[in-house]
């Protein structure tokens, strides 16, 4: 689903190109967003919207956490893309002190989350890196937005 990196892989015709693709893949996990002049790519923008559709009811506005779920601006500082996918897909439970059961549900069957999971990751990673601030990020113009073009072509 990571169209941006998949497109790169698709171009890989030689061994060296594939090596480059793997490097790109790893780079994407480290920096899954594009920001130019304070404007974000479509994936990061859509991630903002989809995050605030589903995740924010526990993890708070702008991923800042709530009185009962952690701030993802902190979690995504250390959490890998693989671990992120694992937790969103399968959920997790933690038994805390003072009846503080902490429960993250599985979103595996939620298409509003799973179809856009890389977008949500991009947004949260950008928040954790302090690359985007609070509130609605401004979008790159569609014609200048590589991610948007690829997304549109895939629909």
């Amino acid at each position: 689903m990571r169209l941006w990196t998949m497109a790169v892989v698709g171009l890989g015709l030689s061994l060296s190109a594939l090596t480059t693709a793997n490097a790109q893949e790893s780079d994407w996990e480290e920096k899954p967003y594009i920001i130019e002049d304070g404007k974000v790519d479509y994936g990061t923008y859509n991630g903002y919207r989809r995050y605030h559709n589903t995740c924010h009811v526990c993890h708070g506005p702008d991923a800042l956490g709530s009185s009962f779920a952690p701030s993802l601006t902190e979690s995504l500082k250390t959490m890998s893309y693989t671990d992120f996918l694992e937790v969103v897909t399968n959920g997790r439970q933690a038994k805390g002190a003072a009846n503080q059961d902490s429960v993250m549900p599985s979103f595996a069957e939620n298409s509003d989350v799973m179809l856009y999971i890389d977008h949500i990751y991009a947004y949260l990673k950008a928040r954790a890196d302090d690359a985007v601030g609070r509130g609605r990020p401004e979008r790159l113009p569609p014609e200048e937005d590589q991610v948007f073009q690829e997304w549109k072509d895939s629909q």
């Binding site: 903002y48 559709n53 589903t54 009811v57 506005p61 069957e109 939620n110 509003d112 989350v113």
Partner: peptide, 14 residues
């Protein structure tokens, strides 16, 4: 889209 037991919100607010 609706999935039983999953949030069905469909809007972003600030």
């Amino acid at each position: 889209s609706y999935t039983a037991g999953q949030p069905y919100v469909g809007a972003t607010l600030s």
